[in-house]
C-alpha cells in the first residue's frame, strides 16, 4: 500500500536545497571569484545572430583565443561608437567561421580575422570541431533553446556557481586529480582565472591569476605540452596554396556583397613568438595571405605602440594591455582602411 508524502518533506527539501545553493555561492564568492559565462555554442550563437547589423554599426571579429583576450570590447565600443561582435573560438581555426560568413548572403559587414598561424594554416579537422559545433547549434537552434538562453544569461551573469568548467559536478570531479593510467590524455587543464568570459564573449585573465606565478607557469607549461603533442610540420607547398585559395574565395564572396575583410596578427611573446616566427616565417605565411587575398593587414610588430606588448603566458594579453592594444589597433585600422571608426 502506498503511503502519502507529507508537505513538510517538500518544504524541508526546498529549504535544504536553497540553503546549500546559497552557502555554495557565498563560499565561492568568499574566494574572490566572480560570475562569468560558459563560452559554449549557446553564447556563440547569441553573438552570431548579431552579425547582420549595417557595417557602420558593428564589426565582426573571428579568430582563435588571442583576439578574445586582446580585443577590449568596452574600449572598442567607446572609441568607435560601434559594436564589436566577438565570434572567435578558443583553440580553433577560424577558417570554418570565415566560410560560414562568406556563404551567408545576409552578411555584408566588416570582418576582422585574427591570425594565429599554427591554427589558421592547419589542416587538422580537430581545429574545426568547435566552430562547426557553434555553427550547427546556431543553424538548428530551436525557439525553446533561444528562450532558455534568455533566462540562462541572467543567471550566469549573477551566479559564480554556474561556471561549468570548475564548479559543476563534472568540473569538481575532474579537479580531484585522480591519477590516470599511463598514456591517458585527460585534456588541457587550464587553471582557474585564466579565462573568464563576459556576455560579449570577451575573455580575460583575472587579477588573482595574474598575481599567481604558479598559475601563469602552468599555462606556459600547457603551451609547451601542446607544441610537443602535435609534431606535424607547418603546411607548405600545394596544401598551403589550397588553403590560401579557399580563404581568397571566401574573402571575395564577402567583398562582392559590399563587405570588407581585414587580417590581424595579435601579439605573442617570448619563446612562443620565437617558435611561431621560425615555424611560420612572416614572408611565407602572413605576407602571402595579404597579397593573395588583397586585404589589408595589421601585424602587431609593425606598430611601435603594439610591438612590445608582453603576454604574461606568452600568448595572450592581460586586461590592461588589451586596452592599449585595442586603441592601437583602432588607430592602425583607421590608417590602413577607409573604415569610419
Amino acid at each position: 500500500m502506498k503511503l502519502n508524502l507529507p508537505v513538510k518533506s517538500l518544504l524541508l527539501a526546498l529549504a535544504l536545497t536553497v540553503s546549500a545553493a546559497v552557502c555554495w555561492e557565498l563560499f565561492l564568492r568568499s574566494k574572490g571569484l566572480k560570475p562569468n559565462f560558459d563560452d559554449g555554442p549557446e553564447l556563440w550563437a547569441n553573438s552570431r545572430a548579431m552579425v547582420y547589423q549595417p557595417s557602420n554599426k558593428a564589426t565582426v571579429f573571428i579568430g582563435s583565443s588571442r583576439i578574445k583576450y586582446d580585443l577590449d570590447i568596452p574600449t572598442w565600443e567607446s572609441a568607435t561608437k560601434t559594436q564589436a561582435v566577438q565570434l572567435a573560438m578558443v583553440g580553433s581555426s577560424p577558417r570554418a567561421l570565415l566560410t560560414n560568413l562568406a556563404n551567408d548572403p545576409e552578411f555584408k559587414g566588416r570582418l576582422v580575422v585574427d591570425i594565429t598561424e599554427v591554427l589558421f594554416f592547419s589542416q587538422s579537422p580537430r581545429l574545426a570541431i568547435s566552430p562547426m559545433a557553434g555553427i550547427n547549434y546556431y543553424t538548428k537552434r530551436t525557439p525553446a533553446q533561444a528562450a532558455s538562453f534568455a533566462v540562462d544569461k541572467y543567471l550566469e551573469a549573477n551566479l559564480v556557481m554556474l561556471n561549468q568548467d570548475f564548479y559543476s559536478l563534472n568540473g569538481l570531479l575532474t579537479h580531484l586529480y585522480v591519477p590516470n593510467r599511463m598514456g591517458v590524455y585527460a585534456g588541457l587543464d587550464f587553471p582557474v582565472g585564466f579565462g573568464e568570459t563576459a556576455y560579449s564573449r570577451q575573455t580575460a585573465m583575472s587579477a588573482a591569476f595574474l598575481a599567481d606565478t604558479n598559475r601563469i607557469n602552468k599555462v606556459r607549461g600547457i603551451w609547451g605540452f601542446v607544441a610537443k603533442m602535435d609534431p606535424t610540420p607547418p603546411v607548405t607547398g600545394k596544401a598551403l596554396d589550397v588553403i590560401l585559395a579557399s580563404v581568397k574565395q571566401d574573402v571575395d564572396k564577402i567583398k562582392a556583397r559590399g563587405g570588407d575583410v581585414v587580417f590581424l596578427r595579435t601579439p605573442s611573446s617570448g619563446p612562443f613568438f620565437m617558435g611561431e616566427s621560425m615555424g611560420y616565417p612572416r614572408a611565407k605565411y602572413w605576407d602571402r595571405l595579404i597579397v593573395t587575398t588583397g586585404c589589408k593587414g595589421v601585424f602587431f610588430k609593425d606598430y611601435p605602440a603594439l610591438a612590445n606588448l608582453v603576454c604574461p603566458e606568452f600568448s595572450h594579453l592581460k586586461p590592461s594591455d588589451a586596452v592599449v592594444y585595442t586603441n592601437g589597433m583602432i588607430a592602425a585600422l583607421k590608417q590602413q582602411t577607409d573604415w569610419k571608426l
Binding site: L5, P6, K8, L12, T17, A21, L162, Q164, S168, L169
Partner: peptide, 20 residues
Amino acid sequence: WWGVALAWSFMLVMIFLSQE
C-alpha cells in the same frame, strides 16, 4: 518524512550542480 526530504534535496542539489 525527513528521509524523503533529504533524498529530494540531494536530487535537486545534484541537478543544479550538474549544469547540463
